[in-house]
């Protein structure tokens, strides 16, 4: 028997959120947190959470599991249980809609802001655009993001400025298009991130890396963006300096 504490909040009936305790009889095999939740929901159908693929590819069931963000469907109870207890809370930093369901509007807005689609100024050929395997390899570790929001909602910088700091998930995607040799808008993409907030609010806390259920490294992508921005700045400065020299 294990003790499961679940964050409960229904805006229609609850003035404040509360933790509800359930005693759960573990089956004789290890199960995923999602399976546990599904069983609890059979006895209490009012528990609300999102879920879809149940195999870690759709990104629906991100939640805080014993204090660490993860996907319920690929997190075995045995790996996270502490002192026979399991605590499930909604992803931190976003408004709670109900129970374990958060309002992801701001998270999606940041994703849309980085223009998450290929932009090319060359007309498409009759076949596919060619790309060498080594150029394609540059997208590995970037395109696999499932938009579960585990990273962005574990990031203190995102908690403080969810409207202005793009956040690790969307920055990873920003870099996915910067790194794509088929995309021709690198300069424009970098320019749109050059303000003090969009990317520079990342202070390398690395929570994003430690929670990503797909093993991706947004911090590395952010580092690449920062260094490209710096190179650009230096380049600009050099141009200005040489221009200035010419005029004087």
């Amino acid at each position: 028997m294990i003790e499961v504490n679940i964050y409960r909040f229904n805006p229609e009936t609850d003035k404040f959120p509360y933790m509800q305790k359930f005693n759960f009889e573990m089956p004789d095999r290890d199960i995923m947190v999602l399976e546990l939740l599904n069983s609890l929901k059979e006895s209490d159908p009012t528990i609300s959470y999102r879920r879809s693929c149940r195999e870690g590819v759709c990104g629906s069931d991100g939640m805080s599991i014993n204090g660490k963000n993860g996907l319920a469907c690929i997190t075995p109870v045995s790996e996270v249980i502490k002192g026979n207890k399991l605590e499930l809370r909604p992803l931190p930093g976003l408004p709670v809609v109900r129970d374990l369901v958060v309002d992801m509007t701001e998270f999606y807005a940041q994703y849309e802001k980085i223009k998450p689609f290929l932009q090319s100024d060359t007309p498409p050929p009759n076949q596919e655009r060619l790309q060498s395997p080594s150029d394609r390899d540059k997208l590995d570790g970037l395109y696999e993001c499932i938009l579960c929001a585990c990273c962005s909602t574990s990031c203190p910088s995102f908690w403080w400025n969810p409207d202005k700091f793009v956040g690790p998930a969307a920055l990873l995607q920003a870099y996915r298009f910067i790194a794509d040799t088929r995309d021709t808008r690198t300069e424009e993409r970098l320019e749109s991130l050059s303000d003090p907030f969009s990317v520079y609010r990342c202070h390398g806390i690395m929570n994003c890396v430690s929670v990503c259920p797909k093993g991706l490294n947004p911090n590395k992508a952010i580092g690449e963006i920062k260094s490209m921005l710096l190179t650009n700045k230096r380049h600009e400065a050099e141009i200005i300096a040489s221009d200035g020299g010419g005029r004087s």
Partner: peptide, 13 residues
């Protein structure tokens, strides 16, 4: 053309 990151052969196809 929309950007799907297909895997590639050596010749880029």
């Amino acid at each position: 053309h929309m950007g799907l990151p297909f895997s590639r052969f050596e010749n880029g196809r």
